[in-house]
């Protein structure tokens, strides 16, 4: 890493306004959607594969109800959980759509998220994994670029997990099934879609936990400020004197 010393520790503009707005809107909406979703799940805490599935059919997963401190509302109310979920869902879906289009237009995806050819060389990927596992975060200007693992996670979330959870959500609607029957076919039936919806929700929770951990390790104040005001202090290079 040859980060210019005079630039180290400088304050730079890091995240665009669109990214910051979308990030915090998502934080709010995903929290609402996840907790109200668990409330809805509590009405029938069993999951199936295929077109149909009810109490007499084989469930691949059967859980107890999620506790009130995890659900929205805090007591069992299928109607209220659905109101929260179905009010937040369209805002979430359209926000993602606009963010995708905006990020294609302002070249955020092309510049910051798309893999460069040399990055995909196995040696480079391996090096990134090793650095990441040893928590050797890049310093100086290099800290402004995402490594291969970060790019893969963000692309996976923006272009795979979030669209998947939206589309499987739509598939559970009998009205949408009549409007676009191909969607439910794509997921192999409504109960499969419900299972995928649930699994994707927990995949996003896993992403969230790793994301929070990484923010804490990389310096929570600096990271938080960069996502609120956009301003980010370039991390100082590690001292090479220490063996």
């Amino acid at each position: 890493m040859d980060s210019p010393v005079d630039n180290a520790n400088a304050i730079v503009r890091r995240h665009r306004l669109s990214t910051r707005l979308w990030h915090w809107l998502n934080a709010l909406l995903l929290y609402t959607l996840f907790t109200s979703g668990l409330g809805i799940f509590n009405a029938h805490p069993r999951l199936y594969w295929g077109q149909y599935g009810a109490n007499f059919d084989h469930a691949w997963l059967e859980l107890d109800r999620f506790p009130g401190w995890l659900t929205l509302p805090g007591h069992y109310s299928l109607a209220l959980s659905r109101h929260w979920h179905l009010a937040a869902a369209p805002v979430f879906a359209f926000a993602l759509l606009f963010y995708m289009l905006w990020s294609l237009t302002n070249r955020h995806i092309a510049r910051d998220l798309a893999f460069r050819r040399d990055e995909l060389a196995p040696r480079h990927v391996w090096q990134d994994i090793r650095n990441h596992a040893r928590l050797r975060f890049p310093t100086g200007e290099a800290a402004l670029h995402y490594n291969v693992l970060q790019k893969a996670s963000y692309i996976g979330v923006i272009f795979v997990a979030l669209p998947l959870i939206i589309l499987t959500g739509l598939t559970m609607s009998p009205g949408m099934n009549a409007a676009s029957p191909w969607l439910v076919d794509l997921f192999g039936g409504r109960q499969s879609a419900r299972s995928i919806h649930f699994l994707t929700a927990f995949a996003l929770v896993a992403f969230f936990l790793v994301h929070i951990l990484m923010v804490l390790l990389a310096g929570p104040v600096n990271e938080l400020r960069s996502m609120i005001t956009g301003r980010y202090r370039l991390p100082k290079p590690r001292s090479r004197a220490v063996p």
């Binding site: 907790t35 509302p73 209220l80 929260w84 179905l86 009010a87 369209p90 609607s173």
Partner: peptide, 27 residues
């Protein structure tokens, strides 16, 4: 628990409740 309780309080507010319930019309 605190933030969820906040949401519960919000849901008891009449105009917020109306806004929340009006998502049905959009769908």
């Amino acid at each position: 628990t605190a933030s969820l309780a906040g949401c519960d309080r919000l849901a008891r507010n009449e105009s917020f409740r109306e806004a929340l319930f009006s998502a049905e019309n959009f769908h």
